[in-house]
Amino acid sequence: MLRTFLPSVNARFLALNFDCAQHLCKRYAGHSKWANIRHTKGAKDAQRGALFTKLAQKMKIAIQEGGSTDPKLNINLEQVLEQARRANMPGATVQSIIKSASTKGTGQKYQIEIRGPGSCIVLVDLFTEHIHHAKQNISTIMKKHGSKYADGGAKHCFEQKGIVIAERPAGKDDAVILEKATDDAIECGAEDVKINDEDHLEFHCAASSLKNVAAVLEKTYIVTSASVEYIPTIGQELTDQEMTDAAKMLDKLEALPEVIQTYNNII
């Protein structure tokens, strides 16, 4: 289901995915407005210390869930270490985190489902030793923004996908870049490509194919990240005020030290 928003695209691919592309184009109709409201998020994520903290948490989770500090035996750890490499995380820091995680079995991963402003759905990934304290902090934030815990089943609005982010080639317009990226996506086994709100190429693939897809794309592009994420399959439209409220809530949630990542289905 490759979205390229091109007037013409590889015919053999489009014929197979026309119906899905129509659905996805409609789903992302208001994406730019939401991205503009959340413009501060990119700046926060780019902060070196905050990024390294999140990566450290992901490493601990991968070791805990995978049961091994050897990336050859732990694919989740291998993926996180690759993210750390692309983020230029010092090797000594990585080794210190791995050593600490292998000797201390503290902390657990949790996922919380929230029904936010305008009935949007937010998934919050946490890693903490004190889940009750973390939930108290989250409850305080939700209350201030008219939100509540979802009753369950909210995750059905999402699916897990491999996401590969690559730098956009310079000196070319969108149509030319996307036409080339479309061919490259087909060649490497990706399902989807677009230019995202940070002006980078964003390739989507099956979660199980992430490693191979990223490896092939690295031969042509400067890949800045590759990870498995929750992608919304059912979007929720919000008013401008609801978008503003949701953005403020997400900023506060992501500032909590226990929060690894958030996902939402806002369009």
Rank of each mutant, 00 (worst) to 15 (best):
V94H: 00
H200I: 07
Y263T: 09
L123D: 14
D245L: 15
V213T: 04
F18A: 04
R115P: 00
H31K: 06
G42A: 15
E254N: 12
N264Y: 09
C157H: 15
Q83N: 02
V223M: 08
T233N: 06
E191Y: 15
H200E: 08
T106Y: 04
L14V: 02
A214R: 15
C188I: 15
M59I: 07
L24C: 10
Q160W: 00
L51W: 00
H145I: 08
A29M: 01
D183G: 06
S96I: 00
L55E: 00
G162E: 01
D183N: 05
I260Y: 06
R115L: 08
R12S: 03
T140C: 06
L77Q: 11
A101F: 03
P71R: 09
K58S: 07
D45C: 02
C157N: 08
T93H: 00
G107Q: 06
E229W: 11
T182H: 09
T239F: 09
V216I: 13
F18R: 12
M249R: 10
M142L: 13
M89Y: 06
K219I: 10
K41G: 04
A134W: 01
Q241V: 06
S227H: 14
K211F: 12
D19T: 15
T40A: 06
L126T: 04
G171E: 10
L81V: 12
N137K: 05
E229N: 14
T233W: 00
C120A: 03
L73H: 05
M249D: 12
T69I: 11
R38D: 03
N137G: 05
D192I: 07
A84D: 00
A185P: 00
G105E: 07
K54F: 11
P90T: 04
K248W: 01
I195E: 10
T244A: 09
E258W: 00
E78P: 02
F127W: 14
S119E: 15
I222K: 10
H133C: 01
E237H: 08
K248C: 14
S209A: 09
F127L: 11
H39M: 05
E78Q: 15
Y149Q: 11
Q47F: 10
D183K: 06
I97P: 02
E218I: 04
I234F: 13
S225T: 14
A134P: 05
Q261F: 11
T4G: 08
N10G: 01
D184V: 02
I63Y: 02
I165F: 13
K41W: 07
L238N: 01
P7L: 14
A166S: 09
S32L: 12
F158K: 04
D240F: 00
A92I: 07
F158Q: 02
Q111R: 09
R27L: 13
I222S: 14
I266H: 13
M89T: 03
S225W: 12
M249L: 04
K180A: 14
D19S: 11
D19M: 07
S100G: 03
G49Q: 09
Q160V: 08
V122E: 04
Y149T: 11
R85H: 08
K33V: 08
D70E: 03
L14W: 08
M89G: 02
L126G: 02
E229G: 06
K144T: 13
R115H: 02
T262E: 01
V213S: 00
K148Q: 04
D70F: 07
G235K: 09
A150F: 13
